[in-house]
């Protein structure tokens, strides 16, 4: 029992950290572009599939981990430039458009990769004892890599000029334009970064789960749940929620049937949506485009996605 529980907890944390990377990409794209990216799961799947091909070619997992996300990032670049650019200001249209992209990507992979699931061998075969069970060390390495990437993302957002621009655009788009930030370029690189993160977590997940063309579907929904519960636009919330949810599901499925655990977590999610649509870890005012004009100006001043200086409030262009 104790060993089962320990394995469930460690598994939950490992999987939660992978999910957190996926959700971070989704959330980043939403926070900046206001696009609900239905193709995010497909990009994750694409990352894993690309990794499989790289491994077939070179036999090196670490090379694939570096190359596949860059490839998918390039695809993201093409998608944003070619397709999403013209409809960026219509949230509902972008949902449907990315849904179409998802269908197309899945089918492309089905055509070339085939419908059968394939496995990627663990690049680090070592195991270590966890109570009386042998636990694969690779999973812990995967978790560590996720943490490093998240740290890198944090540094990028907080310490680099591009990160500063991104935060600026999130806070106030008009102001950012007025200050000379190349907003469209920021949009583009954010989408690329989101695609990169999705693919990266796809490669990380590949040795744990099997690789097939449908693997992105359920993941997409889980990522949505995480982003919503954690709060749209709240990056930190996504990480916490991802680990929390996968812990609950992992530990919960020791005691009840896994599908019951899923239904419960979905029910919980509906509750969150109804009671706190802005997410659990966020100030009670949310800034969503669909909100009435009354609530949006107020929240623009009081909600903080990322830290902002009080002076920026004085210069806000929004009517109050």
């Amino acid at each position: 029992m104790a060993s089962n529980l320990a394995v469930a907890i460690v598994n939950g944390i490992v999987w939660g950290l992978i999910m957190a990377l996926i959700a971070l990409g989704l959330n980043l794209i939403f926070g900046l572009l206001h696009i609900i990216n239905m193709a995010h799961g497909a990009l994750y799947m694409l990352g894993a599939v690309a990794a499989w091909y790289f491994i077939e070619l070179t036999g090196n997992y670490w090379l694939a981990l570096a190359a596949a996300p860059i490839l998918v990032g390039g695809i993201g670049l093409a998608l944003e430039r070619g397709l999403l650019r013209t409809i960026e200001d219509k949230p509902l249209v972008t949902i449907i458009c990315t849904f179409g992209i998802m269908l197309a990507l899945q089918q492309l992979v089905l055509m070339y990769f085939g419908g059968t699931a394939r496995r990627i061998a663990l690049p680090v075969a070592a195991r270590f004892p966890l109570f009386d069970l042998q636990y694969p060390a690779m999973r812990v390495i995967i978790a560590a890599i996720s943490v490093v990437v998240m740290g890198g993302l944090w540094l990028f957002l907080n310490k680099t000029r591009y990160g500063l621009w991104m935060r600026g655009v999130v806070q106030d788009r008009e102001m950012a334009v007025a200050l000379g930030i190349p907003v469209h370029k920021v949009y583009m690189w954010t989408f690329v970064l989101g695609s990169f993160l999705a693919a990266f977590s796809g490669v990380l997940a590949a040795p744990i789960v099997s690789v097939d063309f449908m693997m992105g579907r359920e993941i997409l929904i889980m990522a949505f749940i995480i982003v919503i519960v954690g709060g749209l636009g709240t990056l930190w919330g996504s990480v916490v929620t991802a680990v929390m949810i996968s812990l609950i599901q992992g530990v919960g499925s020791i005691f009840v049937v896994p599908s019951t655990a899923t239904v419960f977590s979905l029910g919980f999610m509906i509750l969150v949506l109804l009671v706190r649509p802005q997410g659990l870890l966020r100030a009670p005012c949310s800034r969503t485009r669909e909100r009435g004009p009354g609530s949006s100006w107020r929240s623009a001043a009081s909600s903080r996605r990322w830290p902002r200086s009080p002076s920026s409030r004085t210069f806000s262009t929004r009517p109050s």
């Binding site: 609900i36 949230p91 509902l92 949902i95 929904i221 949505f224 749940i225 919503i228 749209l232 599908s259 899923t262 239904v263 979905l266 029910g267 999610m269 509906i270 949506l273 109804l274 649509p277 969503t288 485009r289 669909e290 909100r291």
Partner: peptide, 20 residues
Amino acid sequence: LSGIHFVIITIIFALIGSTL
């Protein structure tokens, strides 16, 4: 709910349905 939240809550209800 409206907008994006509405889209997501309908997906979740359908998901509960298919899981059950």
